[in-house]
Design a protein around this nucleic acid. Structure first.
Lengths: 350, 350
DNA sequence: CTGAAAGCGCTAACAA
DNA sequence: TTGTTAGCGCTTTCAG
């Protein structure tokens, strides 16, 4: 029982007493084959345990049925949730997901994209708007479709499927302001190469400027992209001279939940009660954010829906030539218990 | 500037004034080509922006340079960390990772494996030991290598690269017992289809039996695989009749950090102080586990190292025929602050 | 060291 | 509806 040579169309054809073309047809366009012939072929195929060789098919059709995506890292629940939904939706239509990471930005994205192009992915999913222009031009000239995820911007020509990070930034800031917060400290992960975070930040700043003096810039602290950096930063603030921590801010506006949670845990450790002593909001709505103490008020990003939507869009485009359209997904601010209402009147202002 | 037709070996060959065979050689076996010829070819290739078509190459060589992995879900930081390391290591050697999920077990693993085989992955990485026997037989007969991850077991014929879940279960139980815990409640995610968790559980039970009466079975509560299920379970326990919660256990031995953290947060919410009122240990050492209050004592699974090791092993096998060997990776119990020492004497017993 | 030519396994005109 | 046949773009004997 040594290495079985896998059966090919030829073997199936001869067993079924038809030509290879017919075998190929029952595989791809069954309607163009008489039911009886099709049945014969199927039987033969089953008997020989026939599995079409997808490299050969890819070579012939120049479709690999694989979709590539480049993310900075897999080690991030937001990406993971998105990828999970994406994979599920693609798998349903028999497409494969090839994931590639830039190792948190250590490797140029354009290089990883090129690699995916080289292996022949049919389409590419690229998070955010900022990508190497030359590369994009190349993609356009080649036969490779691409879509930008995690953002929505109807001003760009390329399809964007995601949420409006800028508007969400404004929304969160407005929420804080409406609850009486006037001194807000912004906590962000790395900005470099992350236009989504930048957009949120811009939204926050614009909203705050509108409410306060023109030209007002809320203080901003840039941290790493892990819980530790936020945790350690907050601890350091709190260990310093008492009272002057956070320069008197009443709220920490965190541009991701990972950071918000790090801050929450650090404050708890240092005896700062949230939201009494300090309010906190985040972005992402990770699973755990519902269960922190207090439960975190945060923006629920529709990453699962985004995964589904993108898969749908890309496949529709690939199979029926439907042009890919940008699509704005709703994101809700989910209000929980980490923000204090600082307004004088205790009436429920909406 | 419409659709550029990608240059192929032919074009490169004619531009360089050589045959296609030579072009292919400079690509694959440069030592078998004279330096001058090679240089000419490289120049031509560069000029034409030549990218070898990988479907054609795959068809010719029957190697796709892609490695498949099937996991229950991507939405899990332990998997994500592993996949991240795996992808990085594979990418270094120009291999691609195709991920496939069973949607938390909703789709039979064997089906997803078959799909990966059909698209022609060169090797397969399968978490745990339990897989469809028939399918494994099929993989053996075909030319597809596979390796079991997240486990180590030198008694199985197939290569296993991972940690010894059973021994780790014993280690954790022993630690608790050595700290005076006599009444331990086990909290686990779903057992079905997860032999790693089952092994940990068995290790825990065996260790406990050894210390207590023969036939002793510690109580076990099976939960879901998310934080919520643990959180809600603990809340329910604590809301019931006071004092009888957890049937008097002094420690919660959680078979994953996600569960341990859910428990931790729930207890905090309900005013139970860890470790004073209840001790907690976990498995995984998620990034956040270091920052919970109190910091979680847990088993640090070497998933990053595992990713690297597996990539290395698989590639070595694929490229040099090196037989894949099982490999046991060390996992440490990282002792933090969530376990109380209940022993009478306060001397530091080792 | 290099070239000619025969595939790899499938698809898709084109013809029947 | 079915069969014949010519590729898809690359690798790889086998001669030279």
């Amino acid at each position: 029982m040594s290495k079985q040579k896998r059966a090919g169309v030829r073997q199936v054809a001869s067993l079924a007493g038809v030509s290879v073309a017919t075998v190929s047809r029952v595989l791809n366009t069954p309607d163009k084959v008489s039911p009886e012939t099709a049945e014969k072929v199927r039987l033969a195929a089953e008997q020989l345990n026939f599995i079409p060789n997808s490299s050969a098919r890819a070579l012939s059709t120049s479709n690999t049925r694989s979709i590539g995506i480049v993310v900075p890292t897999l080690e991030n629940l937001v990406h993971a949730k998105f990828l999970d939904a994406l994979e599920s939706s693609l798998a349903e239509k028999n497409y494969n997901l090839v994931v590639s990471t830039t190792r948190k930005g250590a490797i140029p994205e354009s290089l990883k994209i090129r690699e995916l192009v080289n292996i022949g992915v049919d389409a590419l999913i690229l998070p955010g708007l900022n990508h190497d222009a030359e590369l994009l031009e190349y993609l356009r000239k080649s036969d490779i479709s691409y879509v930008f995820s995690s953002v929505y911007d109807d001003r760009v020509a390329d399809p964007t499927i995601g949420y409006d990070n800028y508007a969400l930034g404004r929304k969160v800031a407005r929420y804080l302001v409406s609850h009486g917060h006037r001194n807000i400290l912004l906590l962000s992960g790395p900005l470099e190469g992350n236009d989504r975070t930048k957009l949120r930040l811009k939204g926050v700043r614009d909203e705050l400027q509108q409410h306060f003096a023109h030209g007002y810039q809320p203080p901003l602290q840039i941290l790493g992209l892990d819980t530790r950096s936020a945790h350690d930063y907050v601890c350091r603030q709190l260990e310093g001279s008492e009272g002057t921590a956070f320069s008197g801010a009443t709220a920490l506006l965190c541009l991701s939940d990972v950071i918000a949670i790090g801050a929450l845990l650090a404050m708890e450790k240092k005896g700062i009660t949230v939201p009494r002593d300090m309010s906190v909001v985040g972005f992402d709505n990770l699973e755990i954010s519902e269960f922190t103490n207090p439960a975190l008020t945060t923006v629920d990003l529709p990453v699962t829906e985004m995964g589904r939507k993108i898969a749908e869009c890309v496949i529709d485009h690939l199979e029926h030539g439907t042009p890919m359209m940008s699509c704005l997904l709703d994101a809700e601010l989910v209000i929980r218990d980490s923000v204090a209402d600082l307004r004088q009147d205790s009436t429920d202002a909406r």
